[in-house]
Write a protein that binds this DNA or RNA. Structure first.
Length: 566
RNA sequence: CGGGGUGUAGCUCAGUAUGGUUAGAGUACCUGGUUUGGGACCAGGGGGCCGAAGGUUCGAGUCCUUUCACCCCGACCA
């Protein structure tokens, strides 16, 4: 492509609403333009990057035996009613009616559609397993789109669905997809981590997220410094503690603690580590039809993990409660304990199971119990509800956990039979018995990857594309288009590289050196061949964007040298 | 969905407290010239329903009412 003919509107200044590096540089370098909140146009460079990513995904999917399909973007609302997700998804589903007043939704994900396509067409275990995927625009009417391409309402996603006759076979495919995803992200040149995740609203027996490591990531992940373990904090667990503080020695007793309510107050009052103090977090668990107050008990040194709390109660949502609401129930805020507490449901963190020497509220104004032995509590109360802390022990080895930020670019689920059962998608097994498909689902955000690459690979001058993601591999810069020798060499090289199937841009604009360099850096071509004043001495240069180095090359060697680098 | 902010040239923003020439700057764009190794310089030029609707006024970018859009914090987020 000749730069003089290319539609690449670069700007010196970023739009004022861009906050993230990826948003700023993708806008400034002319990859994307915003049309409305959460909606973006891909201009030629952006479209090329999208295609690069799609091609890699396609190659790896075909290699893994998955087949590409394309499902209708507009989907009948009836399917969503059938699966029950029309309520669950709520306002994120963009609904509308056609001229015949039938309701449709714009697909935010395509489990229902894919199951519908397969059901009654695949009817025997002999036709399984099957893995179908598509790369397609999705729409979610997010309450608050933000961060440019990172969280748009309209976005491009690769979504794959696999169908199996057994859980074992689904597990095998899940591992195969994890491996395929790993290859895709590796090829894209990304630093990433595959972590244990919460399965969220989609359900299923297990899931993993693919996290691109970047400070601007929205997710916090706990990773082990010794082994491969990594998990979203929403799902991270820990092994038993090793450095347990010294236990306070005392008899079981009710102790007067006037106006001593917070964990910090109690630590000072009793001169005891928060480890031995029971913290109560009161929340309201909201279910489909009703809601109730739930008391969550954790150690004073821990914090409640909201997603875990939600899973422990089976609630759709966990919301705050006021002290007044608690008092109405006869609960005494500041002095809540699990003993003799029948006013509200309670859930106790697993780390408190059989704990001894504990201090907890006595459910009476200004009193705490001391030296409480938790082994008296019923097992049914215990769940893992505490958020892991940095420095906690890895659940897999002796390592220590630390936190880092990640961008979720993929999420793979062991779905099981949730959707196949709801939609009555069944096959006949070896015994002629009808069974729902055992399913897996595998998502990867294509447009989000575009942003993630830049979040991880940029500097103050702009984008730095990795080789497999770059819109063009080589940029040939003619410093001065009035110099015939420079133009001749540039044109020659351009023709040569095109013939060699290298994606090449020829910057033949009548602009000054500095202007063109800034532009090349902003766009982020991996290599720019600078044909300039050194040509008099028979030299040109290769500018390596990533290394930020310029290397002199004999003009006769330039073609072979650049091929070498690519 | 709660709280806050901003809408003026393609982009970044002045101007709005106190209404009053023809609405400005930088940048980008066009023409001519000089320049040609880090977003150059000089001269000339085009470009605006001041987000929209209604109102107050002799007069509104500026005051009042309504509305829309976008952004930020939070809630939410397969």
């Amino acid at each position: 492509m000749r730069r003089s003919r290319a539609f690449i509107p670069t700007t010196k200044e970023a739009p004022s609403d861009a906050q993230l590096a990826s948003h700023i540089y993708l806008s400034r370098a002319g990859f994307v333009s915003q049309v409305a909140s959460g909606l973006y146009n891909y201009m030629p460079l952006g479209k090329r990057v999208i295609k690069k990513i799609e091609n890699i995904i396609n190659e790896e999917m075909h290699f893994a035996g998955a087949q590409e399909v394309e499902l209708s973007f507009v989907t009948p609302a009836d399917l969503w009613k059938e699966s029950g997700r029309i309520e669950k998804f709520g306002k994120e589903l963009l609904r509308f009616h056609d001229r015949k007043e039938n309701m449709f939704v714009l697909g935010p994900t395509h489990e229902e559609m894919m199951v519908d396509m397969v059901r009654n067409r695949v009817t025997s275990y002999k036709q399984l397993p099957l893995n179908l995927y598509q790369i397609k625009t999705k729409f979610r009417d997010e309450a608050r789109p933000r961060f440019g391409l990172m969280r748009g309402r309209e976005f491009i996603m690769k979504d794959g669905y696999s169908f199996h006759s057994s859980v074992e076979d689904m597990d095998r495919e899940f591992d195969a997809m994890e491996a395929a995803y790993k290859k895709i992200l590796t090829r894209l040149g990304l630093d990433f981590r595959i972590v244990e995740a919460d399965s969220g609203a989609i359900g299923g027996s297990g899931s993993k997220e693919l996290m691109v490591i970047a400070g601007s990531g929205e997710d916090t992940i706990a990773i082990c410094d010794t082994c491969e373990y990594g998990a979203n904090v929403e799902a991270a667990s820990r092994s038993g503690r090793t450095n347990i503080p010294e236990a306070p020695i005392a008899e079981f007793n009710k102790f007067k603690t006037p106006d001593v309510k917070s964990i910090e107050d109690l630590e000072n009052f009793f001169k005891v580590d928060g480890y031995y103090i029971m913290k109560c977090v009161a929340k309201r668990a909201v279910y489909e039809e009703e809601s109730e107050i739930v008391l969550f008990f954790i150690r004073g040194c821990d914090n409640l993990q909201k997603v875990k709390a939600q899973n422990a109660t089976g609630a759709l949502d966990i919301v705050d409660v006021s002290e007044e609401e608690l008092k109405e129930l006869g609960i005494v805020p500041g002095f809540i304990g699990p003993l003799e507490q029948a006013k509200a449901k309670h859930v106790i963190d697993i780390d408190l199971k059989d704990a001894k020497h504990m201090i907890c509220g006595a459910n009476e104004e200004n009193y705490h119990f001391i030296n409480v032995d938790m082994s008296v509590m019923d097992e049914a109360y215990y769940f893992d509800i505490a958020e892991v802390n940095e420095g906690d022990a890895c659940p897999c080895c002796d390592g220590k956990l630390s936190f880092t930020k990640g961008i979720e670019v993929g999420h793979i689920f062991k779905l099981g039979t949730t959707y196949s059962s709801a939609l009555k998608a069944e096959f006949l097994d070896e015994n002629g018995k009808a069974q729902p498909f055992v399913m897996g689902t595998y998502g990867m955000g294509v447009s989000r990857l575009v942003a993630a690459i830049i979040e991880q690979h940029h500097d103050e001058n702009g984008c730095i594309w990795t080789k497999e993601s770059s819109p063009y591999m080589v940029n040939i810069m003619i410093s001065n288009v009035k110099d015939d020798a420079q133009v001749t060499l540039g044109e020659e090289l351009y023709a040569q590289l095109q013939k060699a199937n290298i994606e090449v841009m020829l910057d033949d604009r009548k602009e000054r050196f500095g202007f063109k360099m800034k532009d090349a850096e902003l766009i982020g071509f991996p290599y720019t061949i600078i044909i300039g004043k050194e040509l008099e001495n028979g030299l040109v240069q290769i500018f390596d964007r990533r290394a930020n180095t310029k290397t002199d090359i004999d003009k006769n060697m330039i073609f072979s040298k650049i091929i070498e680098r690519i």
